[in-house]
Design a protein around this nucleic acid. Structure first.
Length: 418
DNA sequence: TCTGGGGTCCTAGGACCC
DNA sequence: TCTGGGGTCCTAGGACCC
């Protein structure tokens, strides 16, 4: 048996942790740049605020103070997430951290599943303050369904165990096809056109038909819904094969210099992520784009890739080649809205491939990067950075409603007057 | 005025090898 | 009428997840 623990309205719950007066109030958390709604409290959901809706479309509600909004504070959410995961590790030796707010736990050998799941819910609430729901079943996909079922029908209990054929069918029948893990927008439309409307309908489809229509991925989902486990717990996280860093700008950029600062910062972030997973990359891709929603302004989207002479994770090297790429595609006369850097050809750093005439003299650069990372780790991100990253940051993203970093910054510690 | 960011996996098709 | 058989690697595109 496997359990899925999923935090309720996670970002909204994190914000509420330190502002109890917001309990029972509708609150939303916005995406980067205060763009779209990415998390809603139950009260906000019942006001009809949809996931992903642009913030300006609910401006009235926010202005009239009916809904309280927050910019995303990933430092806070990341820290709370770590605490939740740490707590979960007390309940099972095998925990797969699936996302910032969910984890799968190996439940094999546990006697009273429902009681055990309840104790997880109670403990996380008591130790961390975040409400969670727990779904338990034979496969990961069914555990997801059980979790949803608990959220929908037994919010207070917060736990659902699929441990009988009857319960499995009941849960499948009450799950819409688009709510099945692994079946997204395109597939659910296709399936609905064949009159497959619920998870149960899908579970009755023939394996061959599903494989033809949805490849082995769909076939796995089908089997998992029928209690055949195809997805195992992934306990060790593999190094990333793709690393990308990009942001929209708080305001449009119309000249090269701030754009080059933004690209330098993105390249430095990629380099940092590479160093963190002990990898190097061989290609750097840069992309820039104008505001795709703007009807009046001219549109320009372009990207280009340059290859590094030797694979690297050195910020100086990545910035240097990212700027070479940027110069190739930059054009005057456009209002740029977003830019980013992506790195490819990622391999472990000891797999470095030298050119015929190169000598392996990167010891110095490694030392510098290590020093920089150490200083930034103990003193805060960007304490030490490269000049190309700039000091102006006029391109910086908008986050006007950022909450304090209550748990990670001394000056943001909550003070309580008694 | 204002519309997020970061990933994964799979398949088909083309180019190549012996 | 007839045209081998068995592979690999790479890329683009499409689906999905949070």
């Amino acid at each position: 048996m496997v359990a899925l623990v999923d935090c309720n309205n996670f970002y909204a719950s994190c914000e509420r942790l330190f502002q109890p007066r917001l309990l029972y109030k509708p609150i939303v958390v916005l995406s980067n740049n205060d763009g779209c709604v990415v998390a809603r409290s139950d009260e906000a959901k019942s006001l009809g605020i949809k996931m992903g809706i642009p913030a300006f479309q609910i401006k009235d509600l926010i202005d009239r103070d009916r809904v309280i909004s927050f910019s995303s504070n990933y430092t806070l959410y990341g820290d709370i997430s770590n605490r939740v995961m740490q707590t979960l590790s007390n309940f099972s030796p095998e925990v797969e951290i699936y996302s910032i707010d969910e984890a799968f736990l190996n439940f094999s050998g546990i006697q009273n599943l429902e009681e055990y799941a309840k104790s997880i819910k109670t403990t996380v609430k008591q130790w961390i303050g975040v409400p969670v729901c727990v779904g338990v079943a034979e496969t990961k996909t069914l555990a997801k369904i059980a979790n949803r079922y608990a959220k929908k029908n037994f919010k207070n209990l917060g736990v659902w165990v699929i441990d009988s054929e009857q319960r499995r069918i009941e849960a499948l029948k009450s799950t819409d096809i688009e709510d099945v893990w692994g079946i997204g927008n395109k597939y659910s439309k296709m399936l609905r056109s064949f009159n497959i409307n619920t998870a149960y309908d899908f579970s009755q489809a023939s394996e061959n038909w599903v494989k033809t229509k949805m490849s082995v991925v769909g076939q796995r989902t089908l089997l998992e819904l029928n209690g055949v486990s195809c997805l195992t717990l992934e306990l060790i996280s593999e190094p990333k094969n793709n690393i990308c860093n990009s942001r929209s700008f708080g305001q449009p950029i119309i000249s090269f210099s701030p754009l080059s600062e933004a690209i330098s910062n993105h390249a430095a972030s990629c380099a940092f992520k590479l160093r963190k997973q002990k990898s190097i990359a061989s290609f750097v891709q840069v992309f820039i784009m104008t505001n795709r929603f703007s009807k009046e302004d001219g549109q320009y989207i372009n990207s280009t890739t340059v290859s590094l002479p030797i694979g690297s994770n050195d910020s100086k090297t990545l910035i240097k080649y990212a700027l070479v790429a940027l110069k190739k595609i930059y054009k005057d006369g456009f209002k740029y809205k977003k830019a980013g850097v992506q790195v490819f050809g990622i391999v472990p750093e000891n797999h470095i491939q030298l050119g015929l005439f190169d000598s392996p003299s990167n010891a110095k650069s490694k030392k510098v990067m290590k020093l920089m990372d150490d200083i930034n780790f103990s003193n805060g991100k960007n304490t030490l950075k490269l000049a190309a990253q700039g000091f102006d940051r006029s391109w910086r993203m908008k986050n006007e409603k950022l909450s304090p970093c209550y748990t990670t910054r001394f000056k943001d510690l909550l003070i309580i007057d008694i």
